[in-house]
Amino acid sequence: MSDTRPLLETRALSVGRGGVGLLEGVDLRIMPGSALVLRGPNGSGKTSLLRTLAGLQPPRDGTLEAEPDDIVLAGHLDGVKPTLSVAENLRFWAEIFGTSGIEQALRTFDLDRLRDRMAASLSAGQKRRLGLARLIVAGRKLWLLDEPTVSLDQEATGLFASAVRAHLDQGGAAIIATHIDLGLAPIEHMDVSRYRAAPPAPDDFDEAFA
């Protein structure tokens, strides 16, 4: 039964940034096992949409139905503490999310060799891998990923793609803002510029200031 329920559903969702509308009328339905790739030029509202879905900012309009405990977000920044080791960084998130074991996450992103290195000495790509490994540690069903492959090399991108694939196979789901083809099979694409918010009528000087 639970497999047929969508993990996330929006109806006529409007999203903005700094009081200005970016997207409107977004209808999404994310089923377990599916992945949605968001496309669109810079500044079109991909990041704001993901932050809204994650519950960090309130929608300007419309409805958003999702269980907050299903969602984990990976944004532009990795939240990696440079003075903690790789394993310490991951263990912290494991405790916060109440899960056990960081071994699988370390293995998936090939961080085993680096586990006792201070995060300060990691390269940008290694840091990114550490940030993505947190997704596995969190143990949540719906991954919201904002440009996850930035500064990853080809091999690491492959690791990431297979991690996403394994996650989908286990009944998870993902919404990914990316321009790279990850070679995921059951995938939908959505160009967010389709939902670009229309500029409000010019004489609309009332309660709403934006």
Partner: peptide
Amino acid sequence: DGTLDLLAT
């Protein structure tokens, strides 16, 4: 470093 975003979720 983005930790606060992650803690909030």
